[in-house]
Each structure stands twice: as C-alpha cells, then as structure tokens.
Design a protein around this nucleic acid. Sequence first.
DNA 1: GTTGCCATGTAAATGGTTACATGATTGG
DNA 2: CCAATCATGTAACCATTTACATGGCAAC
Lengths: 183, 183
Amino acid sequence: MSATLTNTGRVLLGMIAEGHATGYAIKAAIDRSTRLYWGASIGGIYPELRRLEQAELVSSRDDFRGGTRRHAYSLTSAGRAALHGWLADPSEPVLEMRHEGLLRLRFAGVLPIEEQVEVVRRMRTVHERRLSELESRLTTEEFDDPLHRLTFEFSVGWNAWARDWCLSAERSLTRRGPRAAKR
Amino acid sequence: MSATLTNTGRVLLGMIAEGHATGYAIKAAIDRSTRLYWGASIGGIYPELRRLEQAELVSSRDDFRGGTRRHAYSLTSAGRAALHGWLADPSEPVLEMRHEGLLRLRFAGVLPIEEQVEVVRRMRTVHERRLSELESRLTTEEFDDPLHRLTFEFSVGWNAWARDWCLSAERSLTRRGPRAAKR
DNA sequence: GTTGCCATGTAAATGGTTACATGATTGG
DNA sequence: CCAATCATGTAACCATTTACATGGCAAC
C-alpha cells in the first residue's frame, strides 16, 4: 500500500531524488532550500526515512565512512512513481502562513497610533532581515538546480514585497496623524 | 504567574479585547480575519479559554440565552497588560510558511518541461482562488476596524504578488523552451 | 418538524520541535 | 588534542486538527 505519504516524507523523496543520500545531508539540503517554505527538523527525518523504507518507497545500503556507518538512501521505482504522482497531483496544494507580525498589527488598535507604527516597523525589520540574508546568499551560493534558484528567488521577491507593503502601511498610518487616535 | 501565553492564547486575548465574548463568536471572528495569517480551530479554543481564565488573564460570566448557557469572556487588567506587552514585544515575531505549490516546483526538475509549467500553473490557481475570494469579500463585507481592513489588504496584495510571480515564472520556463530539457 | 445555526465540550490522532545522547572523522 | 562537523538515533513534549457528541434556539 502506498497509503499515506506525509508532507515531510514528500520532501525527503524529492531530496533523495536529487541525490542527497543520508539523513544528515538531506537535512542540510532542506536548510539550504526548502526551509523557507517547507521546514523539517532532524528529529523527524530519521524516523520518517525508516517509514519510507518500510513502505518501499526508498531503499538504503550501508555506506561506511571509516568506522561511521551511514545509510545511503535511493528511490525505488515505487518511490519515483510516488514523487511524480505527487508533483502531478491536481488537488489543491497546502498554503498557510503563520505571521505573528501581521497578527500583532491586527490587534494594534488598542495601542496609541505612534506605537501602532512601531508594530509595523518591527514587522518590516523581520522581512528586511530575511531579505538581506537571502540576497547575500544569492550572490555567494551556487545554485546547481535552476528550480532551486527559481524558488529561492520567490522568497527573495516575497520578502521584498512585504517590506514595501510595510513601508506604505507605515506611511498611511502616519498620515492619519499622531492625534487622530483610534476610538 | 503570567508564565506561558501560547500563540493561540494571544489571538484569543486580542479577539476578546475587540469585544468577541464567546468561544463560538471568537472562532467566527478568527475565520473572518486572522485565519489568513494565524489560524486556530474550535477544538483548541475552548480549552485555551479555560486556561486563560485559570491564569486570570480573562474572566467569564455566565450569560444565558434562553436555556443555552454561554460563557461571556472579558479581559482582566492582567490580560490587558499581557496583550499590550505582547504587542510591544521587541523580540523577533514568528514568520513561517507552508507552501506546497512552491515545494512541488522545487522538485519539478524530474518532470518534462511542459509538466513543470503545469506545476506553476496549479500553484498560480491557488493564489488566484484566494485572491478572488478575498477581493469579493473586500467589496461585500464591512470592516469595522481599520487594522482589520489593513491586514486583510495585506493578504490581498500578497496573493496578487504571488499570482504575478507565477505568471512570470511560467513565461521564463516556457521561454527556456519545450526542447531545452533539464539534464 | 426539520434544517441550520449557536454553543460547548472531549478524545484521539497528527505532526512537529527540542533536547538529549552517542560516537567517528577531519582539520587546524 | 581539541573543536567542528558528520552521522544517527530516542524520548518527551507541544500545539493543533479532526472527529465525535450533545443540545437549545430560530426560522421556514
């Protein structure tokens, strides 16, 4: 039974397809790329790899590096099929966001207007920090895969857009003026 | 002890501050506004309300509507202080995304180029669907609170930006041409 | 009289993060 | 020889989602 492939499992399949063979290497690859829009933490990766192996979507061979035993995973044909099936799946993909900065702004009405602007400013710095980190990586890192680069650029663009939105929100809040307090 | 205020708890405080008194009404208000950037589901709301009450951040009085008992919550002064403290908190706010469309695109390299474009197209329709839903609500619904409107407009803008990004990604993938297959 | 909404609640399962533990290898 | 990195793993915990269950009220 192909049964239930978890979302973390799908990332693993994709990463293994790209040639990242060990749990450790996969984790590093996730941190370099999908973490921005789909995270996975090390504590969940190893058990999930074993589950995938049990489901026969991946196979592993022991690969000794000196005395260190590591598991080198590769896709089975069922795994390749599962990956393709997921990519071509016409069902609505998950899209959700947890944006505490926006959430704070949503409730900032209880604060005086100057502090409301501060809330947006702090929201902006989050996006700016992300943006400058990503932009510097864009120049220093190599992007082997064109789709890795493309999705990376999505993150750059979205953070830039959000920063600009914050700037314009700050202006519109300030324009309302420090004395035009919300009731 | 003010101790640990969970993120769901914070949304509840904010909603109660706005005058949404019952768990049910709070849930409805969340669905109308913060769901886009901070969800909470009904199963978690009632227990969390009781936890907040135990922590003395909110107080409830029984409010009978005929034979239906409902709990009308309001903020205590400690609750108001906790809300203000959170809003003014200079620490880095949470910002994360789960974007399956992007994730699929990240791994779409295993597919032929025409199907890669399809992956982006499906990602675009997600944003388009959201966008048209939000835009229609923008004209029909009333936005009592200006910050409710502002954060709502953020979601509109972000989905529009993402749709445009998809369109340009589709063009750049198509330009690469159906014969320039990825290695 | 029945459908749909208001209203509250619990239990189980899910999915994930964090922290801890271990140990080998590599490079300075 | 020490620190950093490679490598795997487990246990505890956490928040949240889903499903189920109950029942009154309002409108048609």
